[in-house]
Simulated assay, not measured.
Amino acid sequence: MKYLFFILTLISLISCNSKVIEVQNLKEGSLVSTNSIKMVSEKSFILDSTTAPKSKYSQIYLDNYGKRYFTFFNRYDNSICFYDYENLNLINKIKYQKKGPNGILMPMGYHIKNMDSIFIYNKHQNQLVLTNREGVVLNRISLINNSNIKNNKWILKYPQYYPRTVTPLFEYKDKLLLTGQFMWSMPDSLIDTFKFTTEVNLKDNNLSFKNYYPQELYGFGVNWDHVIYKEVFSDLNNDRDFLVLSFPISHDLYISDLNTNQYRKVYGGSNFAGTITSVNTPKGKSTPERKEMQHVEETDLYSAIKYDKYDKVYYRFIRRALRKNDINFKWKDKELAIIAMDENFKYLGETNIGKWGDWNWENSFVTKEGLNIEFLNHDDINEVALILKIFKIEK
Results as ranks from 00 to 15, higher is better:
Thr50Tyr: 07
Phe375Ser: 14
Thr367Tyr: 00
Gln97Cys: 01
Tyr96Pro: 11
Ser30Arg: 06
Asn363Ile: 13
Tyr110Leu: 02
Asp252Met: 07
Asn35Gln: 12
Arg316Ile: 07
Phe45Glu: 09
Asp308Arg: 01
Ser189Ala: 02
Phe73Glu: 11
Thr260Tyr: 01
Asn146Met: 04
His226Asn: 15
Lys389Ala: 12
Ser256Pro: 05
Gln125Tyr: 07
Met1His: 13
Arg133Pro: 07
Asp84Cys: 02
Pro214Gly: 05
His251Glu: 14
Thr197Met: 13
Lys56Thr: 13
Ile228Met: 13
Leu138Ala: 07
Glu216Lys: 06
Asn372Met: 04
Gln127Tyr: 05
Leu236Ile: 09
Lys389Asn: 14
Asp311His: 00
Gln262Pro: 10
Ile305Cys: 03
Asn344Ala: 01
Gln97Gly: 05
Gln160Leu: 07
Trp184His: 15
Arg133Thr: 14
Asn352Gln: 09
Phe329Asn: 08
Phe247His: 01
Phe6Ser: 11
Asn152Met: 09
Leu386Trp: 02
Lys334Cys: 11
Met186Ala: 02
Ile118Met: 01
Glu394Met: 11
Gly100Val: 00
Lys38Asn: 10
Phe45Gln: 12
Asn237Asp: 15
Thr179Ile: 05
Leu156Asp: 03
Lys355Met: 14
Tyr314Gly: 01
Val129Arg: 03
Glu289Tyr: 11
Tyr3Val: 14
Asp235Asn: 05
Tyr347Ser: 08
Gly29Ser: 01
Leu388Cys: 09
Glu350Ser: 04
Val40Trp: 06
Asn211Trp: 05
Glu383Leu: 12
Phe242Gly: 01
Ser189Trp: 00
Val137Arg: 02
Pro168Asn: 11
Asn17Ser: 15
Ser286Thr: 15
Val296Gln: 03
Lys54Pro: 09
Pro107Trp: 00
Leu371Asn: 11
Asn325Gly: 12
Leu26Met: 15
Asp188Glu: 04
Leu88Met: 09
Ser208Trp: 05
Asn377Glu: 15
Lys2His: 12
Asp257Ser: 08
Arg133Leu: 12
Ser36Met: 06
Gly268Ile: 02
Ala340Cys: 11
Gly268His: 08
His251Asp: 15
Ile338Trp: 01
Lys334Asp: 14
Asn261Leu: 10
Glu289Asn: 10
Asp192Ala: 05
Ser55Leu: 05
Trp361Asn: 08
Phe391Tyr: 15
Asn363Gly: 14
Leu178His: 07
Ile318Asp: 10
Phe70Ser: 06
Ala52Ile: 10
Asn328Gln: 12
Leu348Ser: 07
Ser364Phe: 01
Trp331Ile: 10
Lys43Met: 10
Asp252Trp: 03
Phe242Asn: 03
Ser41Ile: 12
Ile339Thr: 05
Asp257Glu: 09
Glu335Ile: 04
Arg319Tyr: 00
Asp204Met: 06
Tyr254Gly: 08
Thr193Asp: 12
Gln181Glu: 13
Leu258Arg: 04
Ser44Met: 14
Lys56Pro: 06
Glu350Arg: 04
Leu177Cys: 12
Arg320Pro: 13
Asn205His: 10
Arg68Cys: 05
Lys312Met: 02
Ile305Asn: 02
Lys173Asp: 13
Ile80Asn: 05
Arg164Pro: 04
Phe45Ser: 15
Ser55Ala: 06
Ile390Met: 11
Arg316Phe: 10
Cys16Ile: 12
